[in-house]
């Protein structure tokens, strides 16, 4: 949605074609692969991800950074690992 591209992520999760809650399970499973302070990108075309990535961040006390698009126009949701 945002006009300006967001920062690059240390890890990008390709969740194209996955339905809820698979992208969130993938995010939870793999966020530990980046350093604390690092960014994870979830690339997901399931519309629920737009709401569920920020909700997951709230529940798991991580920081939701924002949304932009991947090279193919699929939404890309950025999360900062803080713990």
């Amino acid at each position: 949605m945002s006009e300006q591209p967001l920062p690059e992520a240390a890890l990008e999760l390709d969740c194209r074609g996955m339905l809820c809650p698979a992208p969130i399970i993938e995010l939870a499973r793999r966020i530990g692969e980046v350093e604390v302070g690092g960014l994870v990108a979830v690339v997901a075309d399931d519309v629920a991800a737009r709401y569920d990535v920020p909700a997951w961040c709230r529940m798991k006390e991580q920081v939701y950074v924002g949304e932009d698009v991947a090279f193919d126009g699929v939404p890309r949701y950025l999360v900062r690992r803080v713990g």
């Binding site: 809820c20 519309v47 569920d52």
Partner: peptide, 24 residues
């Protein structure tokens, strides 16, 4: 109100508007 249980494939607008988790 999850998308996978709705006819629309869209999650509940209500849950989304409240910032609640929409799956499960």
């Amino acid at each position: 109100g999850s998308a996978c249980t709705a006819s629309t494939l869209e999650p509940s607008r209500v849950l989304a508007a409240m910032g609640a988790l929409t799956h499960g």
